[in-house]
Amino acid sequence: MNYQHVEILLVEDSSADAEMTMRTLKRRGIANNIQWVRDGVEALDYLFCTGDYADRINGYPKMVLLDLKMPKMDGLQVLERMKQDPHTKTIPVVMMTSSREEGDLVASYRLGVNSFVVKPVDFGEFAETVAQVGMYWMIANEAPD
């Protein structure tokens, strides 16, 4: 049973991307406690304490990094559910995707995404982008309690 407060929920089907992201966030000292889930269904289970996470009692994460294209349930569906529920509505969601598709971008903003970020191929740029996003939402931004 984990009582430690989770700072960031990372929803990412690619373990490589997840590893690179978590490494960057930890190395830059932005967040130490990161919960990584592999798809949308697991993300909703975690957020609403259902399924494998029914016994979870450590509250809501401070932000969600959400991959767009995932098996089972994609990022847009997760986003939609989160923004419909009053408990998860206020959690900042940053959409992370591999490509800048106009349709995805527009759909995400319609559903109330807080940021939309294209993952660069260059690792240096990638790390920089992840760091900036984390810095902004975790440190610079003031969120309601």
């Binding site: 991307d17 690179m20 591999s98 993952k119 191929v121 690792f123 990638f126």
Partner: peptide, 16 residues
């Protein structure tokens, strides 16, 4: 754009 870029990112990322 989506599927080919991800592995490239990983190649570069892990090399770095």
């Amino acid at each position: 754009s989506h599927d080919l870029r991800a592995p490239l990112r990983h190649i570069d990322g892990y090399a770095r």
